[in-house]
Design a protein around this nucleic acid. Structure first.
Lengths: 194, 194
DNA sequence: GACTTTGTTGAGCGATCGCTCAATTGAGCA
DNA sequence: TGCTCAATTGAGCGATCGCTCAACAAAGTC
């Protein structure tokens, strides 16, 4: 393991923190999880980050990367395709970890200012990305969505709500049922398409 | 402080636990919070409950009491009045603690089987109560809701999702905006009434 | 009053957490 | 080669947690 310059080590720790919180969640993740993932001593982490700052930064990066991949980065694809893919993949097993992070960031934001700020910014980013997508489909004539900024909030809310309901072990709401309800809600917000 | 018989002490501890989790949240609450609320020694709690069992039981009681008060217990009131009151009070400041408990139970349910079961049962109860209300309004001709069991899931989901968005400190979504979005969603599920 | 049963006490155990810090290592440079 | 200093180590501090358990106190029973 070669010795690294400060900036490189910082990004390396950040990426390890992303892996750890995706695997264990924001609340269960510890500084030792991150340092042992990298194979370095426990004391090294505090040399570069406070735990709360690292945790919030890792959360931001994970969420922003997901939004970019599923919405922002697909600005050249047809709006209905992007939205349809969003609905189809919303409650897949791979998405669980991401929804869990959202719930945890919301809750822990009550006592962690950095996490609250990260969650607030991520929410803004998500709302903006989805609003743009809805507006694009409207102006392209793909669907009818006269108030994309409003519809975006409702879709995000039902998405988060259904995700939370699915996450409960032994939940009475299956993933398929959640996808069904999300599709109906999205269709309503976008006229009859998607 | 007179010595209590076992059953009385159990309910007394349960009620104290309800107060504590409403005030501090499920994750931040400790056994010492409960015993100091009652003014008894720390060791007494473990004589009656394990902490995880007490926490799950207290969560169940708080949530069930709220559902009964706002929905189930108002079966003699007009359905549109009940639903309207539900929307109006959904994101009041007093409701914050309850929504926080929902989010925490969902998240902690991943590693706490008792809490997962309590959350699952509470979800069932909520879905049943809201389904009944929607069906009653439909059969009374107050509104049109042909599939109350389905609509109930969507309303619960958007309710939980909007609540989570409001809970983030510095959230871009205000309580008034959340109430607005909930009202629109409910109106859509119930035809044009409510 | 002697004895059993049950409720209650509170110091403290064992585990976990983020973080500290003196000691050590090694790359860059004269 | 000797020097400097940032990078790294890892034992351990201090705080917190749920929970244990020997000791004690008050009813109930005879």
């Amino acid at each position: 393991m070669p010795r690294l310059k400060g900036a490189d080590r910082r990004t390396q720790i950040l990426e390890a923190a992303e892996r750890v919180i995706l695997h264990k969640g924001l609340a269960a993740a510890t500084t030792r999880d991150v340092t042992s993932d990298l194979g370095v001593a426990a004391g090294l982490l505090a040399h570069y980050f406070s735990w709360s700052a690292l945790r919030a930064a890792a959360f931001s990066r994970v969420v922003v990367a997901d939004i970019d991949q599923s919405v922002t980065g697909r600005s050249r694809d047809a709006p209905d395709t992007v939205l349809s893919d969003l609905v189809d993949g919303a409650f897949s097993a791979e998405a669980d970890a991401l929804w869990r992070l959202w719930l945890e960031a919301t809750e822990m934001g009550a006592s962690d200012a950095l996490l609250a700020e990260a969650a607030s910014e991520a929410t803004d980013r998500w709302h903006g990305a989805l609003s743009d997508l809805l507006a694009r489909g409207h102006s392209d004539g793909v669907w009818t969505c006269p108030t994309p900024h409003e519809s975006s909030w409702r879709i995000i809310a039902i998405l988060l709500g259904l995700a939370g309901l699915c996450l409960i072990p032994g939940s009475p709401l299956s993933r398929d049922a959640a996808t069904h309800h999300l599709r109906i809600a999205v269709r309503h917000e976008c006229g009859l398409s998607a």
